[in-house]
Design a protein around this nucleic acid. Structure first.
Lengths: 234, 234
DNA sequence: AAGTGGTCTAGACCACCGT
DNA sequence: CGGTGGTCTAGACCACTTC
């Protein structure tokens, strides 16, 4: 059973994406939402706060709750982090598994993953293709003590769905280091770009709820297609 | 008079940065914080929630509030958005104002800034230098109806401090589009890089609390020095 | 079982926006 | 001024971690 405020977030999010409020550009007042969902004002405000932090809306004291009209599609959202399916609706997303194997963590990797040297780790190399365009190369490491099993079948569809829905693990948070660099030879080859073309790189460290690291990855994006969208709040 | 939860956020943030909790890696329990600050648990939790979203801490049910040990210095934080002074403490930050003038918005700019064609707009070109290294080129537009006055003196120090402290405007939120591209000729020249070197680009649209756009800008970063840090929460 | 965070309520009062 | 969001309280009960 999910929390009430989460159900309200999901419902309002769906309504916004469906364009239910496009004509007026506003949500109902907090008071009305309280009546609609039959919960306390605190619970409504909790849901509203989450939708604000996701970049969907903003509140103006004395005035109301307004829809934030940003282009939410076609860019990688740094807010929702729900994967390509959410960011690229109605687009053909393909994942080619180049390589998948179990290796032992050397000193450098062990330091990054905060695990012991020699820990078994899945190393996965994937090429992502969207609408037929090469989009990104992913070089990922998963701690096998946390993710006990992985295969090409899973890597081809969605590793995250597998972790969340099948392994029932709680993903907590992630550090993302974002920068530009020159393409390396291997990534350039797979992405169909020239060496020394620009690359948009993201180094990820992903933690479970309890603070343990289960994934470290480097994602090299095709600069011609990949753009990140950050909806910031002050 | 600032809100209680904001004062608590500031105090705990300072304590964390001062290393007060480094030895144990944990914050006191919510109950203890309630006693320390003499507020309700709801207020403590509001402060804790903000510190979580800023990436300082994470909570584990049944266990406690833990410090999130990420390198918070030397990278541009996509969370705090408090400017270079916060992101690069104890570093020498210099801003060279290349150009500052008032122009009239053409159709394209008017669309971006959601203002009328012909609206007076400040156009500011700045080169940012950190510790003697060329860091970024900023090409910014400010709506003169909202920012009535601007000069080289202000642009040389901090336009944001001026807007917040002197004009007393409430900055609300910002859209940031992040991507990699090849350097253009002008930026390459100022940054001391070659054309076709990679560039880390951010297109910003910045809104006041009430949803009005006061700034649109393009920032071209030196790929050798600029890295963005995003602390995400699921 | 005890400790600690997660969810939720009902209600009060304040601050800002628009008419 | 009425409408609407912002802050804050006191307390209840649940869920997870740790021992």
């Amino acid at each position: 059973m999910s929390a009430k405020y989460k159900l309200i977030v999901d419902e309002i999010e769906r309504d916004i994406l469906d364009g239910k409020y496009n004509s007026i550009g506003k949500l109902p007042t907090e008071e009305e939402l309280v009546a609609t969902y039959g919960v306390s004002r605190t619970t409504v405000r909790k849901a509203i706060g989450i939708l604000s932090s996701k970049g969907y809306i903003y509140q103006v004291q004395g005035s109301g709750i307004f829809i934030r009209e940003s282009i939410l599609k076609g860019y990688i959202s740094l807010e929702t982090l729900k994967g390509f399916t959410r960011d690229f609706p109605n687009r053909e997303i393909e994942s080619k598994v180049i390589n998948i194997e179990v290796i032992q963590a050397d000193e450098k990797l062990a330091r990054k993953m905060k695990c012991d040297i020699g820990t078994n780790v899945y190393y996965v190399k994937r090429l992502r293709i969207i609408d037929g365009n090469t989009f990104s190369m992913e070089y990922s490491y998963y701690n096998k003590d946390i993710i006990p099993y992985l295969n090409e079948e899973i890597a081809k569809s969605s590793i995250y769905s597998y972790i969340l829905d099948d392994l029932k693990l709680n993903i907590g948070f992630a550090d993302k280091l974002i920068y530009a660099d020159k393409m390396d030879e291997e990534s350039a080859k797979y992405l169909g770009l020239a060496m020394d073309d620009p690359a948009l790189v993201i180094d990820n460290t992903v933690f479970l709820n309890n603070g343990n690291i289960f994934e470290v990855s480097k994602v090299i994006h095709n600069y011609k297609h990949a753009k990140l969208l950050k909806l910031a709040t002050f």
